[in-house]
Nucleic acid binder design. Structure first.
Lengths: 238, 238
DNA sequence: CGAAACTGTTCAACCCATACGCTGTTTCAC
DNA sequence: GTGAAACAGCGTATGGGTTGAACAGTTTCG
């Protein structure tokens, strides 16, 4: 019995290069690679919402429905575009601490280059080649901690959350920098209501303007906390 | 000159109860509260994608376009529904460490009750009353650490990321539990390719089935790391 | 050579957000 | 009072998007 890949999660087979063999009929005018590359192009240029079957089809000079000869659904397309756009992780330096910093930095850099990746809805655990490669390299670097694989996975998720967190923050702050007027207006609207509504800590935060900070510092701060926390665990474990 | 709330971020004014005064004309058949409550109902019942202007309008016996008398856009609706569905934070116990645990637990519980809140796209820093209330209570609890407000904000973001992380993980794992057959198939598809493709760590992870774990443990693990990390910082600071 | 298989296309049905203009109602100002 | 301004809700329409069914053309195997 041949492998039934019909009910595998969307994009799994295609992302690993397993595509239905074709024996008869006209040769396809397009290729998956071409379609995915076009999707990434649209994402880079116009954001995540712009990566649609319609647009890609139009760009490639084909009707929308022709796309369904290549992908089963939009979701499948997104999975493929996501994996391809994430690409391969960098080589990590030796030493789990340096490796973790490099890994997180690389992720932040990636999200800086392609902010729209933060908008990709995450349906489940990663199963595509490039995403799993990122997991693999970090997990390998964490092996030297001597912790259990389970704990290492926990650390990795902590680091991943940290990276996504700050990348998202950096994006929204970068976007709001374009309209400092609006930010000012928000403050004027908000502060009186915070004072009346019993938000003393937030008021003092606003008035001290402590929220005006360098994002790199923020990332460094969060990452340092996590790494210190992992260190404590390593020291505790026999 | 009266306050110009026209160009404030969508949902800001409405969430704080500032709604356009109406002097003439028929009384509105609907109220914002009603609309938002209906949106939450749909979210609870059918997930985030189900909260649409069309559906809410139909449910309330009104045409879609009538909605635009109350909210300026779908985004505004989402912001309002989000804030209302999040609700008020719990009372936190004294002691920043216990408070942090309670705060994260409450958030995880919230996302357990309303998983669709994880799908709400985050456009910017929180500005709505309930969301800011969550920030306020945690920031107040962190005041006793003696760290700067800036550092406290960093800690809060760390905790928030942790909560969202594990809530998301819990949801996807809970969803995949419904179809263990598919998970099996994924493994059968994936493992050979991981072995051939040079993913030794992941292969061992898969084969040891170390990924089968209690999620509560995961949360506890991540949270413990973060709290330990914060502790280290407190100990270092004068 | 013929038939099977596969291609892209047209036609079509949906869902969704949003804009415009109309009608009828309410209420303030005179 | 009463008239007119202001406003709610509706119908219609538009544009964008995903997905499906039926069809016609092309390639290649038997």
């Amino acid at each position: 019995m041949t492998e039934d890949r019909a009910d595998l999660p969307p994009g799994l087979a295609l992302s690993w290069g397993v595509l239905p063999v074709q024996r008869r009929g006209p040769k396809p005018a397009l290729s998956i690679e071409q379609i995915v590359a076009t999707g990434i192009e649209f994402g880079d240029r116009y954001g995540f919402e712009a990566v649609s079957l319609q647009r890609i089809a139009a760009q490639l000079g084909v009707t929308t429905n022709a796309m369904y000869r290549y992908v089963r659904s939009k979701e499948e397309l997104i999975v493929l575009v996501h994996d391809k756009a994430v690409g391969l992780p960098p080589e990590l330096p030796s030493g789990w601490r340096a490796a973790a910093i490099a890994w997180v930095d690389a992720q932040v850099k990636l999200y800086e280059d392609r902010p729209w990746l933060l908008d990709v809805p995450i349906r489940g655990a990663p199963v595509t080649p490039n995403l799993l490669r990122w997991v693999e390299v970090m997990l390998a670097a964490l092996a030297e901690t001597g912790l259990s694989q389970h704990d290492n996975l926990g650390c990795l998720m902590l680091l991943d959350g940290c990276a996504r967190n700050y990348a998202g923050l950096a994006r929204q702050l970068g976007a709001s920098d374009r309209t400092p007027v609006q930010s000012e207006q928000v403050g004027q609207f908000l502060v009186p209501r915070l004072m009346e509504g019993g938000y003393p800590t937030l008021v003092s935060l606003y008035l001290n303007q402590e929220y005006e900070d360098d994002l790199d510092d923020d990332l460094e701060f969060g990452l340092a906390r996590i790494l210190d926390g992992i260190d404590v665990l390593i020291a505790k474990s026999p």
